[in-house]
């Protein structure tokens, strides 16, 4: 079987995947004050990764991105659960969130909330679940 030459697909993918990843991170951080958040950010990241999978194939991607996506799910869950437990340590009810203002180098005065950590957990869980579903089905050749 001869392989088709998909140079146009691969070249554009490198560019588009980069933009997609950037946009997904923007969406993830925008969630507090604008539409966005962990869920849509995670979906967008998985979309970028899947685009790369489609252009480069599974073998190449496993070399570039040696991540077991199935293990990402419990990592996300434990982060989300830990933000809830964090509230309990400070003697507040479960899942109590807090925030503070910090002077960051480039961004200036920024509001950092623990809700962001919860969102990070959601983000990782969504990426893990989506990638696991798609890669499991895609790998199924039996």
């Amino acid at each position: 079987m001869t392989r088709t030459n998909d140079i146009i697909l691969r070249t554009t993918t490198t560019l588009i995947a980069f933009i997609l990843l950037g946009f997904s991170i923007y969406l993830f951080f925008a969630g507090h004050n604008a539409p966005g958040g962990g869920f849509i950010g995670g979906l967008m990241t998985s979309a970028a990764i899947i685009l790369m999978y489609m252009a480069y194939g599974i073998q190449a991607m496993e070399k570039i991105l040696p991540i077991n996506f199935r293990q990402i799910i419990p990592v996300g869950l434990i982060i989300a659960a830990a933000t809830g437990i964090g509230g309990m340590i400070f003697n507040a009810p479960f899942l109590t969130q807090t925030f503070a203002y910090f002077q960051l180098p480039i961004l200036g005065k920024t509001e950092l909330a623990t809700a962001l950590l919860f969102d990070l957990g959601v983000y990782l869980a969504v990426v893990g679940v989506t990638m696991t579903i798609i890669l499991t089905i895609a790998n199924d050749r039996g």
Binding site: L77, I78, A81, F94
Partner: peptide, 19 residues
Amino acid sequence: NLTVLPILLPLVAGIIVAF
């Protein structure tokens, strides 16, 4: 916070066991 323990403990146990 005691009320959440019956939900939280199995959840965390399940996550740890998944690793």
